[in-house]
């Protein structure tokens, strides 16, 4: 047997992977063309919708990265908020925006390592509740700090990103989404993918097989929170006003979770498709459903779990096991 060579190592059936890459490519080409289309007098409004769709995509995909390691978190609002507040406070301290952005993201990443370190042994609902409680602690702390520090309950004003240039802001968001997709695909093709999947599907078995669970869970937390914080920076720079209640709202943890599940868990394409569909639907329904728009998210979440547990990308890969691209 040892002499036998030229034995084909079975490649994973590549069909879906190619289709997913193609779909991602099409998405980015369309998204890149969008701000250069003649959008007429609703241009500002359409660019804003586009911008927040991209932000929702970053949030959802970064949430999915963490979920891949079996950590279904309700702390995404915290990282989003830490990104937004970190950015605003750094600008206030005179740091130029190009440096404030990565610094705010790294701060959130560092905090996530602390959170991940103590929630290491929690799973399922315990983990979810602990991360929810963590978010509330961060929110109340920021809210109760003296107003001179972080604006208290009244919030903070943030200088507009790129001097308020809508197309520039949109393209920056697109670049950061591209970065997120790049990270997601890199994870998918590396050792990390196997570690995450193993931990998710059987933590103890993974350890018996030599997977350093602590290291990989923290890696997932770090990547995920840094990207979510970048989404928070975009949000802060676009809305130029942030408050604890809006930024740390439970809604900011719920939407990425629902978006990923609806689009297709543990994939790169799913969360992005989900974000596009749900965000556009939100704009269309916004005039009909004013208060309590999250009703749609609740419904989508329930229906996805009951009838579409593998999300919309699962529709064209029926019967196929494992996390595809």
């Amino acid at each position: 047997m040892s002499a036998v060579s030229a034995r084909p190592v079975p490649a994973r059936r590549p069909t879906f992977a190619w289709r997913a890459l193609l779909a991602l490519g099409i998405f980015f080409v369309l998204a890149l063309a969008f701000p250069f289309l003649p959008l007429g007098d609703r241009r500002e409004f359409l660019l804003q919708i586009g911008f927040f769709t991209l932000v929702a995509g970053i949030m959802a995909l970064s949430w999915d990265l963490l979920a891949r390691s079996g950590q279904v978190s309700l702390a995404h609002a915290a990282f989003y908020g830490l990104g937004a507040y970190g950015y605003a406070l750094l600008l206030k301290a005179g740091v130029p925006w190009g440096a404030a952005m990565p610094l705010a993201a790294l701060t959130a990443g560092f905090v996530s390592l602390l959170l991940g370190g103590v929630t290491m042994r929690l799973s399922g609902m315990y983990f979810a509740i602990a991360t929810l409680a963590f978010t509330e602690v961060v929110r109340t702390v920021i809210q109760n700090l003296p107003e001179s520090v972080a604006g208290g309950a009244n919030g903070l004003l943030v200088p507009a990103l790129l001097g308020g240039n809508s197309r520039g802001q949109y393209l920056l968001a697109l670049a950061l989404l591209l970065l997120t997709v790049g990270v997601s695909l890199a994870v998918r093709l590396s050792k990390l993918h196997h570690a995450f999947a193993a931990i998710r599907q059987g933590e103890e078995t993974a350890r018996v097989l030599g997977v350093n669970v602590v290291r990989y869970k923290l890696a997932a937390f770090f990547l995920s929170s840094v990207l979510a914080a970048l989404a928070g920076v975009l949000y802060a720079g676009k809305t130029f006003f942030i408050s604890p209640l809006d930024t740390f709202s439970l809604a900011n943890s719920i939407s990425p979770l629902t978006t990923s599940i609806f689009g297709g868990l543990y994939t790169t394409l799913g969360p992005i498709l989900g974000a596009t569909v749900l965000r556009v639907a939100e704009e269309l329904l916004h005039n009909t459903v004013k208060n309590g728009y999250l009703v749609v998210y609740g419904l989508v979440l329930m229906l996805s779990i009951l009838w579409l547990p593998r999300g919309i990308v699962g529709l064209w890969r029926r019967g196929r096991q494992g996390g595809d691209l």
Binding site: V72, L257, Y293, V295, Y297, G298, L301, M302
Partner: peptide
């Protein structure tokens, strides 16, 4: 967990 979570969001926002 996610099913009841969705139900909660649905009822609260309804």
């Amino acid at each position: 967990m996610l099913l009841t979570f969705g139900l909660g969001i649905l009822l609260q926002n309804l």
